[in-house]
Design a protein around this nucleic acid. Structure first.
Length: 210
DNA sequence: ACATTAAGTGATT
DNA sequence: AATCACTTAATGT
């Protein structure tokens, strides 16, 4: 785990901070589909994503989901930042999109380092800003884009985080992520295929426009 | 061969 | 764009 920590953060964090991380961080491996944190769970650790990708979901009163955004390697979860400070519970669910490796840092350390290491404070602030921008982008997508555009964007994002232009998923799973019905997804996919933007196959979609 | 699951379609709201 | 009802196609046992 140390190797990957250095690969990704050597140029961002100062040596003492890297040492401090190695001292207290716990490596965690998550397989595809596994839930990292669920709604209502108290947050005690802050995750640093070393490899892989994680999708962040919101849930409504009926238990239906909606994808908020994907986290990629090097990202951290903004939810943690706000939650940690007030010892609050998670408002989101995080599910591994691909097999991922995380470093879990206790929240007390996270706060302590804010004062001790300026590279840490910058990192946390930057991450927070990036998350905020992503969130605004998803709000725009939901508010201003039509279903077919949303669908294409969803697939492009998915292809990106998986680093594979062939997305392995079912129409049903797409529908739950986008909070729409399977029938609508099937029809829109067919339309997009007609426009030459992708190729539809069972359990598989090849994205042509990235 | 049979059951299960994924995807396609027309009609209705 | 959602829902229903139904068909067809692919896949697992």
């Amino acid at each position: 785990m140390n190797k990957k920590l250095h690969e990704r953060y050597d140029y961002i964090f100062e040596p003492e901070l890297l040492k401090a991380i190695e001292m207290v961080a716990v490596a965690r491996h998550i397989s595809k589909g596994e839930t990292v944190i669920d709604i209502g769970q108290p947050i005690t650790k802050m995750p640093l994503l070393l490899t892989g990708a994680i999708k962040v979901l919101r849930e409504d009163a009926q238990g239906d989901e909606l994808l908020v955004y994907f986290l990629e390697k090097g990202d951290s979860c903004a939810m943690t930042f706000s939650c940690c400070l007030g010892n609050k519970k998670s408002e989101i669910r995080a599910v591994a999109e691909t097999d991922s490796e995380l470093l879990m840092i206790p929240v007390e350390k996270m706060q302590e380092w804010m004062g001790r290491f300026h590279t840490w404070r910058n990192f946390v602030l930057d991450s927070y800003h990036i998350r905020m921008m992503e969130l605004l982008e998803t709000v725009d997508t939901l508010a201003f884009m039509k279903m077919d555009e949303r669908l294409l964007k969803y697939l492009q994002d998915k292809a990106k985080v998986n680093q594979d232009d062939t997305v392995h998923t079912t129409h049903r799973d797409i529908a739950t992520d986008m909070h729409t019905s399977r029938v609508v997804v099937s029809r829109l996919l067919k339309k997009l295929e007609g426009e030459g933007k992708l190729i539809v196959q069972r359990n598989r979609l090849k994205i042509l426009e990235l």
